[in-house]
Design a protein around this nucleic acid. Structure first.
Length: 270
DNA sequence: ACCGGAGCCTGTTAGC
DNA sequence: TGCTAACAGGCTCCGG
């Protein structure tokens, strides 16, 4: 499940293979893969455009194109983006293909079909209502405190809310709460200053570790080149139900919060 | 305004 | 062992 570190890893891997390249054509096997506009319009609008930059905002991959266009990709659960030679065999879940100069293709493959492609002039059409980037300098403990104070629901689903904080998903929310020693069911607005400071540090720490380890290959995620990341070997609680906590030895428990599986240590998360 | 739940999907896993 | 049903989960939409 690609979250901020996984998406950042994808962006870093694809950047040198995309920036400076020109989109010659687009193919699509499943029209709903393209959220907006429709396929024929998207195809017409991007043909001949050059990729000027590749960046990330929240869990979106943003390709800035010549002509003021922006091509956005969201991988959701099982999306996979890769630049490969045009002669590489495609698989049946490859829904959209951007033909590039130099006999290469940018292919968006997605077994679960949750991922989407967007083409917009104005980024705000898609990137709206997102919370702060947790690794940017303007994300301070005070900012986190202000955002958490508005919610009395459990801290875990609050961290998953992209309007509260951008880029954190199920793995890193569980990991950050464990690192900070905070129980996932605690009301978001019940955390004191010390806990907020600890959570702020923990969020940045687990996200940076995830980036350093090039993502967590726990379900479907692999890097654009098909190899696995390494963060799955560094998780403290995620999908470690019944195993012992590295810190206190107690058994990791699993509960469901906001419809999502949540893993925590009953010994060191209070 | 906030929050929980359904729905979107299909490969994998649990259970009979 | 082989089948089916439940599960996984980011995000949007809907209703309380």
């Amino acid at each position: 499940m690609p979250e901020l570190p996984e998406v950042e890893t994808v962006v870093r891997a694809l950047r040198p293979r995309l920036v400076g390249h020109t989109i010659q054509d687009v193919r699509n096997q499943w029209p709903r893969h393209i959220a907006r506009p429709d396929f024929s319009e998207l195809r017409a609008r991007v043909q001949g455009l050059r990729v000027e930059a590749l960046t990330r905002r929240a869990k979106y991959i943003v390709a800035q194109l010549s002509g003021g266009e922006h091509l956005l990709f969201h991988l959701k659960m099982t999306g996979h983006l890769a630049v490969v030679g045009a002669d590489e065999p495609t698989n049946k879940h490859t829904h959209t293909v951007f033909v590039l100069n130099g006999d290469e293709e940018l292919r968006f493959t997605d077994t679960r079909k949750f991922g989407r492609v967007y083409l917009v002039q104005d980024l705000a059409e898609v990137l709206t209502g997102l919370g702060p980037e947790p690794l940017e300098a303007d994300f301070t403990p005070a900012v986190l405190e202000r955002r958490l104070q508005k919610h009395k629901r459990a801290i875990k689903p609050t961290l998953l809310d992209q309007a509260v904080l951008a880029g954190v998903g199920n793995i890193y929310a569980d990991e950050a709460l464990h690192e900070a020693g905070i129980h996932p069911t605690r009301p978001a607005n019940s955390l004191d200053q010390t806990e907020i400071a600890a959570l702020h540090t923990a969020i940045q720490q687990v996200l940076n570790l995830g980036i350093e380890r090039e993502g967590a290959s726990i379900s479907n995620y692999v890097k654009p080149d098909g190899t696995k990341g390494d963060m799955q070997n560094a998780v403290a609680v995620f999908r470690r139900t019944g195993m012992s906590c590295y810190r206190c030895g107690r058994e990791i428990e699993r509960i469901v919060l906001g419809g999502r599986s949540t893993h925590f240590c009953p010994g060191c998360q209070v």
